[in-house]
């Protein structure tokens, strides 16, 4: 099972269309999507506009692979649940966000194990095939921020 999420705020038609195309090409794929107020309606997988936090967590945890926008919620949740994640950064040239910070996020997090960036259907398909061949190692990330940061913050709060 693959879980697709575009995040809580904005739709992301380009991403939803890429995943729909992937499902069309690989009919055995099982995908569930949280797609926001998408203009593009997927033909090849089940979806909802939004999910409650509990439903979101359930879908997330039962998936083997996450496909998402390059949003921190999706990335951190994938890392801390030990799931590989394929992410597409939102770009202002397509009116997908207010600025291009997701390009920077994607660039910086692509260095982490289990995080892969794509900007087209071809790149998505390539990563998908690599993962199918078992080439995705995931990072081990704990539930909380590193001890040093927690200690620093504790001192500031005290």
């Amino acid at each position: 099972m693959i879980f697709l999420t575009v995040g809580t705020q904005l739709p992301f038609d380009r991403l939803v269309e890429c995943v729909d195309q992937l499902c069309g090409k690989y009919p055995d794929l099982s995908v569930f999507g949280q797609i926001g107020e998408s203009k593009y309606q997927p033909k090849n997988f089940d979806y909802q506009t939004s999910l409650s936090i509990q439903e979101f967590n359930k879908r997330f945890c039962s998936a083997q692979l996450i496909i998402s926008h390059a949003g921190m919620g999706s990335i951190i949740t994938a890392l801390s649940n030990n799931k590989p994640i394929l992410m597409m950064p939102r770009e202002t040239q397509f009116a997908e966000h207010r600025n291009d910070h997701q390009l920077g996020t994607a660039k910086n997090f692509s260095a982490k194990q289990g995080c892969f960036v794509f900007k087209s259907f071809a790149e998505l398909e390539l990563h998908y095939k690599n993962i199918q061949r078992g080439k995705a190692k995931t990072s081990q990330v704990s539930k909380y921020a590193p001890e040093q940061m927690i200690t620093n913050l504790k001192q500031i709060i005290a």
Binding site: G7, T8, M72, G73, I76
Partner: peptide, 18 residues
């Protein structure tokens, strides 16, 4: 909600005793 909240919750041990 979303990424901002996910990050805040990761800092929870820093203020959990308060």
């Amino acid at each position: 909600n979303g990424g901002h909240l996910v990050q805040l919750l990761r800092l929870f041990p820093a203020f959990s005793e308060h």
